[in-house]
């Protein structure tokens, strides 16, 4: 059971303070959406969780062990650049499986990669395609296939669908949600960055709203113990709509009062 706790984390690039005193405690198996205007430091925060950057002060603990460097414990899905463009989609998945399952033979890895490609509803022929031969949605499906393939307890996703059209995005939201939900025990803890309130409402079990930089957490909402509406019922559910309006207002107010920072 992996619990993530973030204690008094601050971070600066050179002299610019980007994150100021971030605190959160997240239970294993949560679907955490990190919401905020662009430029507020969501990606930076995710990079800290990934271990690609170290906090300037404070610490990030996963089950009481501080995050020291990037690794397979925390899988990452980037908005782009996730796949190596010189490898086929299949090779991209296989090279990840190879690091994760050292004892798997080549043919086992290949079979597993093919299975993962099918799990994300792509045809087998995608295995041999280069990333540039795939659409944006297909590339993200492959990145998801790889991320779930290495089966990390924690998965970090940085606006993974930000560059996709609305229909593709909706399909991929459902895909990720289903893959996450399917695992009844040892469900992954997902940190999902987005600037889209509706995306957060749809996916999250926990929502954290980041303020304008230097960023703090200005709002936190948990769906724990509450009934959650899905894509079709969301718009008719007064509670969800109230939360939605509330979130939008919080973000807008924050942007308005701190707009001198932009």
């Amino acid at each position: 059971m992996l619990e993530v706790s973030v204690n008094h984390v601050s971070f600066s690039y050179d002299k610019d303070l980007i994150l100021a005193d971030i605190n959160m405690k997240v239970e294993a198996g949560a679907f955490v959406c990190l919401l905020g205007q662009s430029g507020c430091g969501k990606s930076t925060f995710l990079r800290l969780l990934a271990g690609l950057e170290r906090p300037s002060s404070g610490d990030i603990l996963v089950d009481d062990a501080p995050v020291m460097k990037a690794g397979l414990q925390r899988g990452v899905v980037f908005q782009d650049y996730g796949l190596f463009p010189w490898m086929s989609a299949g090779e991209n998945i296989m090279i990840a499986l190879k690091q994760r399952f050292k004892n798997m033979s080549f043919s086992e890895r290949k079979a597993e990669a093919l299975k993962r490609i099918k799990d994300v509803e792509l045809p087998e022929s995608v295995f041999n395609k280069l990333p540039k031969e795939l659409s944006g949605g297909m590339k993200q499906r492959c990145a998801i296939a790889r991320a779930f393939g290495i089966d990390p307890p924690i998965l970090l996703m940085d606006e993974p669908f930000g560059a996709l059209d609305a229909v593709t995005r909706a399909k991929l939201q459902d895909l990720v949600f289903d893959l996450w939900k399917k695992e009844t025990e040892n469900r992954k803890t997902i940190f999902f960055v987005t600037h889209d309130v509706d995306e957060a409402l749809l996916l999250a079990t926990e929502i954290f709203v980041f303020g304008q930089s230097p960023s703090k957490i200005i709002y936190n909402y948990s769906f724990k113990g509450k009934l959650k509406s899905d894509r079709t019922t969301m718009l008719d559910d007064p509670q969800t709509m109230q939360l939605r309006n509330n979130l939008i207002k919080i973000i807008h107010d924050e942007v308005r009062t701190k707009s001198h920072n932009l």
């Binding site: 690609l52 990037a70 690794g71 397979l72 980037f78 190596f84 090279i95 190879k98």
Partner: peptide, 22 residues
């Protein structure tokens, strides 16, 4: 591009394989 190296780091790709394949 640093992002390729970061990608390799999150996948814990070993030194030799990183050299040859990344």
């Amino acid at each position: 591009d640093k992002r390729y190296l970061e990608n390799a780091a999150t996948l814990e790709i070993g030194e030799v394989e990183k050299l040859l394949r990344v």
